[in-house]
Simulated scan of single mutants.
Amino acid sequence: MYLDVIDLRDFYAEELGATVRQILGQRISTAWPTVRGDRILGLGYATPYLSGFQQEAERVIAFMPAAQGVVNWPAQGPGAAALVHEDMLPLADASVDRVLLIHALEVSNDPREVLREVWRVLSPGGRIFVVVPNRRGLWARVDTSPFGYGRPFSRRQMTMLLRESQFSPLLWSEALHMLPMKRRKIRRPTSPWETIGQKFWPAFAGVIIVEATKLLYQGIPAKEKVKARASFRPALIPAGASPRPTAG
């Protein structure tokens, strides 16, 4: 189930969305401290997290699923956002260096096809940064944020999904340990609840975060051994020769 792009935009314009953006933005910048010269793609609704890369990266673009809708981005300068089918990206093979997927896999009809298409456009050794709702977390059970929609994942499910799509997980973490409540003191970025939750109930965080790299090889399935069977080769008789008489 895709959320409308207007709902996503409005969420990040509110105080809870601003808190989420700050917490997840810190995780992204920690994983990718430098992106100098890189080509970065945001897939899903990633624009709240892409602005920090524009000054350093060679190119930053945002692709939003057709079923979700698209909004203009950035607010100033040439537009860098496009409406796409997420399993048919309008990019050449190995044309981007990093891909940020957020509000993407959990609402996709086929997350494997999305990741396989991301694998195609990612350069050798390229990396992806994925944020998905945690199956155990409270955020996946309430509709006060976009993480309460679509299909939540466990770490095991994400591991299998990445490996089936030819990605190798590099770094795992969790975030949004605070409760998705509207009380201001709970949602402030300086609130101790995020730190407390990370220490005492990490398995129940709101989102699972994983950074993974593109694999360039694939296992070859073993073939069944075929047992050799005895065969008979017919004896050919030269043209014009008569068969050898048999003893009477």
Rank of each mutant, 00 (worst) to 15 (best):
I128M: 09
E164S: 14
K223Y: 04
E15Y: 12
G240K: 11
E113M: 13
P90G: 12
N134P: 04
R127N: 06
M178H: 11
V35Y: 04
L105V: 05
A62C: 12
V99S: 05
E211A: 09
T195P: 00
S165N: 06
I23A: 10
G44C: 13
G150C: 04
I186Q: 02
P152N: 03
P238A: 08
I23R: 12
R39M: 10
S165P: 13
V71F: 12
D4I: 00
G206W: 00
A13L: 13
L24S: 07
P189F: 03
P180S: 06
P65E: 06
D93Q: 13
W193Y: 15
A205T: 05
S29I: 00
G197Y: 05
T195S: 06
I128R: 08
T47S: 11
I196F: 13
Q54M: 15
Q68F: 03
K182I: 02
L101R: 03
G44N: 09
F232G: 02
N109K: 12
M64W: 02
P111L: 04
I209K: 02
A66R: 14
W193P: 04
R229P: 06
R136C: 03
Q198W: 10
M160R: 15
F11H: 03
G137R: 00
L41T: 03
I23F: 07
Q68N: 09
A80G: 12
W139D: 01
A62I: 07
L215G: 02
R155A: 04
G240A: 04
R156Y: 03
A104V: 01
L215M: 13
F232D: 00
S154L: 03
G137C: 01
Q157V: 02
V142T: 11
W73L: 08
K223Q: 06
R163M: 10
Q76Y: 15
E58M: 06
F53T: 07
P33N: 10
I40Y: 13
